[in-house]
Design a protein around this nucleic acid. Sequence first.
DNA 1: GACAAAATACCAACTGGTTGGTATTGATAT
DNA 2: ATATCAATACCAACCAGTTGGTATTTTGTC
Lengths: 216, 216
Amino acid sequence: MSRPTKLTPERGDARTRLLEVARDILRTKGFAATTVDALCDAAGVTKGAFFHHFKSKDDLGVAVADFWTETTSTFFEGAPYHTPGDPLERVLAYIAFRRAIITDNIPDFTCLVGTLAQEVHSTAPEIRDAAGASIFGHAETLEADIAAAILARGIEPDGWTPASLARHFQTVIQGGFILAKAGNDPDLAREALDHLDRYVRCLFGVHAVAQSGVSQ
Amino acid sequence: MSRPTKLTPERGDARTRLLEVARDILRTKGFAATTVDALCDAAGVTKGAFFHHFKSKDDLGVAVADFWTETTSTFFEGAPYHTPGDPLERVLAYIAFRRAIITDNIPDFTCLVGTLAQEVHSTAPEIRDAAGASIFGHAETLEADIAAAILARGIEPDGWTPASLARHFQTVIQGGFILAKAGNDPDLAREALDHLDRYVRCLFGVHAVAQSGVSQ
DNA sequence: GACAAAATACCAACTGGTTGGTATTGATAT
DNA sequence: ATATCAATACCAACCAGTTGGTATTTTGTC
């Protein structure tokens, strides 16, 4: 109930709690369908606290997109797909990792900023831009490994670049989330990543090892 | 103003006008952010007329998804990508056609049912299912050409099927729309289709002809 | 084919609850 | 002390949906 005092520091401050519940609720219900009151109730704070930390609901939208950028950056930096010595293996390990973190509950693995960008692209440009920066910033973290893989494998990309392929990874991931939601079936997101894996192997001229696909 | 009398039949009846404006406004602003009053104003009808034709706002959501299914089915049936005699050429022509209908204004070419499914997937299952039926129904229209292309080219798909590849087309299209919205740049949707074209040629072992890509 | 009855299509005004946002007051840390 | 942070109480605008009614079209009957 109370404030971020030294008596209850484990709860975190009101701002952080609001960002955490916003991340979870917005991912499920979307931005417009989520009320400020609902966020305050879930975070255990009052509206006074909300509008102390955020000057408007849109301002929270920008803040939660930035919050997503920070937390996912940390998450992916610590993920195991960076360990292989061979750059193409790292690229393929990224795809496998994205596939592995898909769970049964759709809101648990889908992307907040993809949802936000889709919903507010023409009504709240500031939120859209914060969401876009998150997506494209994450895509950029893949470019170095792709570029290194091109060199290591000695291939000559015809009509594509590390940057465009990195963006295409996000395209397939986001599109997979849409189909998973539309079909209410997480396997559709896994299937998308299986095709992406096949595409990358195709581009680099390597064959797939035994894989547990869900394609039918 | 008036009603669907024989005096002013050209306006269409109130229900059709509401579905048309809903299609356009929902694609831009999303479902929750669009009010019934806004739809009525745009259609030139009153709220009484709205709730005469639709028992609730959600009911309109289902109806507009079905309306989208009908109009896009007609549109794609009449599209020129069916004309090539070779099935793989028809498949590639579909991708080229999807690329060609991308315009400068994002809401003009993005997908209503993809947007709807993403936004209401866990709050309005009936709308989500109507949107899902639209997406997966459209995907199914591609399966026959893909299957025929497999036979005609004598390839042996390893880990994929006509159905899964048809779904992947929709994945890439929907993902391209998300990136186009997030980056506020239609070229990102074109770039996604360029990668899809390359993937299909890779699967069928054919080389790309000179292409006007936007990848950088 | 005339005419009443029923069904359909539509409208203007209204309602009760909800919305994002504010004003004021009180608590805590330094 | 005083700046920061948060609780309470509140508001005007807006929301989906309802009411009670009128105009038009269709249907049934003779």
